[in-house]
Simulated assay, not measured.
Amino acid sequence: MSALISTLVLGGARSGKSVFGERLVAESGLARIYLATATASDDEMSDRIAHHRARRGDGWTTIEEPLGLVDALTQHAGRGRAVLVDCLTLWLFNLMEAGRDPEVEARRLARYLGVAAGPIVLVSNEVGLGLVPETPLGRAFRDAQGRLNQTIAAAVPNVAFIAAGLPLWLKRQTGE
Rank of each mutant, 00 (worst) to 15 (best):
M1R: 07
M1V: 04
I5N: 07
L8Y: 06
L8K: 00
L10D: 00
R14L: 09
S15A: 13
V19P: 01
V19H: 02
V19R: 10
F20V: 03
G21P: 01
E22R: 11
E22S: 02
L24H: 01
A26R: 05
A26G: 01
E27I: 02
S28L: 06
R32N: 08
R32M: 04
R32I: 02
L35I: 05
A36M: 07
T37W: 10
A38V: 02
T39N: 09
S41A: 15
D42G: 11
D43C: 09
D43R: 01
D47N: 11
D47M: 05
R48C: 03
R48H: 06
I49M: 02
A50L: 12
H52S: 14
R53G: 15
R53T: 10
T62M: 12
I63C: 15
I63H: 05
E64G: 04
D71C: 10
L73E: 05
L73T: 03
Q75T: 04
Q75M: 08
G78D: 11
R79T: 09
G80Q: 01
R81V: 14
V83D: 10
V83L: 14
D86M: 06
D86S: 09
L88M: 14
T89R: 04
T89E: 02
L90Q: 07
W91M: 12
A98R: 08
D101N: 05
A106T: 05
R108I: 13
R108T: 14
L109A: 01
L109N: 00
A110G: 07
V115T: 15
A116S: 13
G118H: 09
I120F: 08
S124I: 08
S124V: 13
N125I: 00
V127K: 00
G128H: 00
G128I: 01
L129A: 10
L129M: 07
L129W: 06
L131P: 13
P133D: 06
T135D: 01
A140M: 12
A140F: 15
R142I: 04
R142T: 04
D143P: 02
D143Q: 08
A144R: 07
A144H: 02
G146Q: 13
L148T: 04
L148N: 06
Q150H: 14
T151A: 09
T151S: 09
T151K: 08
A153H: 06
A154N: 14
I162L: 02
A164K: 15
L166T: 09
K171M: 05
R172F: 01
Q173P: 07
